[in-house]
Nucleic acid binder design. Structure first.
Lengths: 211, 211
DNA sequence: TCCACTTGTGTACATTTGTTCACAACTCGT
DNA sequence: ACGAGTTGTGAACAAATGTACACAAGTGGA
């Protein structure tokens, strides 16, 4: 066709990644997406795919990289906005939920990828979660909020926090994005879970550890 | 072909479900399986599929039903074997891990389905988890292990326990089934998480609840 | 300006897929 | 033992898929 080309290089790459996310957001599972389907959604000819990705797994890996950026932006915002310790958890959860709504497809992709088909994507997402958990450890140390906990116990606590929040994703993707009531319920429930965990951490004695 | 037929009726149905699980166990994602692929793995002609299932979603739903049986067997064993309260969590986790290893493909399917493609399967699995959580509540009440907790708080605690255990599935499917060292690590870590949660529950005051 | 390079297009093709249909074999109640 | 219903088979086909190849359109450095 005599259609005008876009100027920016790499535009198609972004269109393809976004197309995949869009399909995921429409209820499809990433593992079931095909090259033709993605290019169709992106409004691009099938062969264009190979200019940017080797296969769908490759696209998945690059999505994980971008997911990393999304998570880092979220952490930054959390660090800036959570100043008083007493509302730490409500606010953190609120920021999390808000980012999930803002980047819904990315987080659905993340929830799918944890038990997805590509081992590499699986490991990539797990690695992001580990990083998130370790950053959380650092922050709690820095804020002097976990002074009675040993390193291993603090790490365990943060890990549990991250898992709990991550699992709430499977709740979030089960409700419509505009069902404010349900989302509010999930927010409250997750917050209470975190509070329960921190009460546990506060009363944890290192001697509890086996071995 | 002049091959001999099996006598039992419904044999093919089981073969198909098992074939799907086998493929899942081999690293495939359920959402990416096709009818032909499953029938091929089952050693059956493609059209035989339609004798038992409307489509792949239907097969998924019937797998969820069977998964329910597996979970119930696990609960029964846990109730029989966990007698002394002090080792409650170690033993429960051990039974869980053992069942996961014994029915590995079922549990992988479960982990996949939580963020899977079929909304119905998703809801089915979530419903199984809710049931599991409520049974756990009953057991704790019966064993007089949570007498200071209100119903809502006990429910929250059990929910968190179930989520934590369920999330550990994503760890378990990431390691080889015979990597005993890694599995032992996951077992220990999960146990400690549960202990942390119960320390939290033990020191939880109902007043913590917002609203 | 020209030339190498990258990015996108269109055509092509062998495979694979879901599904239909007519037929064979087995099961069971009478 | 026979006829109805169920379960499995094989051939068939339109549609979709992954991938290869040759070519057009843009880009940037000399």
């Amino acid at each position: 066709m005599a259609e005008r080309k876009r100027r920016k290089p790499g535009e198609t790459r972004d269109k393809l990644m976004e197309a995949a996310l869009t399909l995921v957001g429409k209820g499809r599972h990433f593992a079931s997406l095909g090259i033709r389907e993605v290019t169709r959604q992106a409004g691009v000819v099938p062969t264009a795919f190979y200019r940017h990705f080797r296969n769908m797994d490759d696209l998945g890996l690059q999505l994980v990289d971008e997911l990393g950026l999304v998570l880092r932006r979220m952490m930054r915002e959390a660090r800036q906005n959570v100043l008083q310790a007493d509302k730490l958890m409500e606010e953190s959860v609120a920021i999390f939920i808000s980012h999930v709504q803002q980047n819904r497809n990315f987080f659905i992709f993340m929830a799918q990828g944890l038990a997805g088909e590509s081992r590499a994507v699986q490991e990539g997402i797990r690695s992001e979660l580990r990083f998130f958990s370790s950053e959380l450890s650092n922050d709690l140390r820095r804020l002097r909020l976990a002074e009675h906990l040993g390193d291993a116990d603090l790490e365990l606590t943060c890990d549990l926090v991250v898992r709990t929040v991550a699992f709430s994703l499977t709740d979030l993707i089960g409700v419509e994005p505009d069902d404010d009531y349900q989302i509010e319920q999930i927010k409250k429930r997750t917050t209470r879970c975190l509070q329960l965990i921190f009460v546990g951490a506060a009363n944890w004695q290192t001697g509890n550890r086996p071995e």
